[in-house]
């Protein structure tokens, strides 16, 4: 484990660099694919940023102000906590925060993220945000269940809940190959907790912005930044658990990790722009009837593989 004086600045620097990358990826995807029209607010430029900060602040009638202001901070903090768990090099102790039950901590980050999004929608005391929050909780908790089974499967070959051990177990074969169902299912969780594309039931345009519908400009900016941060954390985690994290020839570990995480982020951004969002109740049925059994199958495959 690194000391707090190294861990905190390192995590935050990587997070900010990643957020810039996410912004670039989003802009590129929008320009190249152009399927989903996004709000002007979503495309951040420096000039736009200044305008946003200066814009007049509005509010709703009797909101829960504390929760409203704190929700983006909570979301961002959870992203930072998730990213801090990721091992940057292959050796015990090479993650900013290296804990024995690392993958369980990531599970807690996922669960608390659902709460952050719910608080964001609920606290403005308005109809559309509340609907977004409710929809998101139903979908988010269900898809989280799927991701838990997938993550347990990824921990099986390592025989440990520690993320460095999970990386180490992929030295010969990545979990992507060993458990082919794992990464696709985990990516769906990524779409959900970063509020993107087919699983964006919180901030979708069909609810005029959903949980963000009543946000003033500054809050919306903070929320979008936190969303980008969560994508960075998720991409790094997916690269660690399924793509061998910092493992790779020639190049140093952190570079490999950055490349893999960048690839995962790009895939998520593209998926978010290309896939349509079904009705929430249909998605719910799909998750419970199709995805959850698939995650059981993934766990069975991982178990058989580990027994061999």
């Amino acid at each position: 484990m690194m000391g707090p004086l190294t861990a905190l600045p390192l995590t935050l620097c990587v997070l900010f660099a990643g957020m810039i990358l996410v912004g670039v990826l989003d802009a590129l995807a929008w320009r190249l694919l152009g399927r989903v029209p996004i709000d002007d607010d979503d495309r951040l430029t420096l000039g736009g940023l200044r305008a946003v900060i200066r814009r007049q602040s509005i509010s709703t009638e009797r909101p829960d102000l504390a929760a409203w202001r704190l929700a983006p901070a909570l979301y961002f903090g959870l992203a930072a906590a998730g990213l801090a768990l990721v091992p940057v090099a292959v050796a015990v102790g090479r993650a900013p925060v290296d804990v024995e039950a690392g993958i369980v901590v990531w599970g807690a980050v996922e669960a608390l993220t659902v709460i952050a999004v719910f608080l964001h929608g609920w606290s403005s005391n308005a109809l559309l945000p509340l609907m977004g929050a409710y929809r998101f909780v139903a979908i988010g908790l269900s898809i989280m269940l799927v991701s838990m089974f997938v993550l347990i499967g990824a921990a099986l070959p390592a025989g440990s809940l520690r993320l460095t051990a999970i990386v180490e177990s992929q030295r010969e074969l990545w979990n992507l190959v060993r458990q082919p169902l794992g990464l696709p299912l985990f990516l769906l969780l990524g779409l959900a907790i970063t509020l993107r594309g087919p699983l964006d039931y919180a901030d979708a345009p069909d609810l005029a912005g959903g949980t963000s519908a009543e946000d003033n400009a500054q809050l919306r900016l903070a929320w979008q930044l936190a969303r980008a941060a969560m994508l960075v954390a998720f991409a790094a985690m997916a690269a660690t658990v399924f793509l061998g994290g910092p493992l790779g020839p020639v190049l140093p570990g952190p570079v490999w990790l950055a490349l893999k995480a960048g690839l995962v982020a790009a895939v998520l951004v593209v998926l978010g722009h290309l896939l349509a969002r079904p009705d929430a109740s249909r998605m719910m049925t799909f998750i419970w009837v199709v995805l959850l059994p698939l995650s059981f199958l993934d766990l069975a495959i991982a178990g058989l593989e580990a027994l061999r």
């Binding site: 039950a101 369980v104 599970g107 807690a108 608390l112 709460i115 719910f118 908790l141």
Partner: peptide
């Protein structure tokens, strides 16, 4: 951590 994780879901 399991307590934190489980309670987050439960309280939601």
């Amino acid at each position: 951590f399991a307590t934190i994780f489980m309670m987050a879901v439960e309280m939601m």
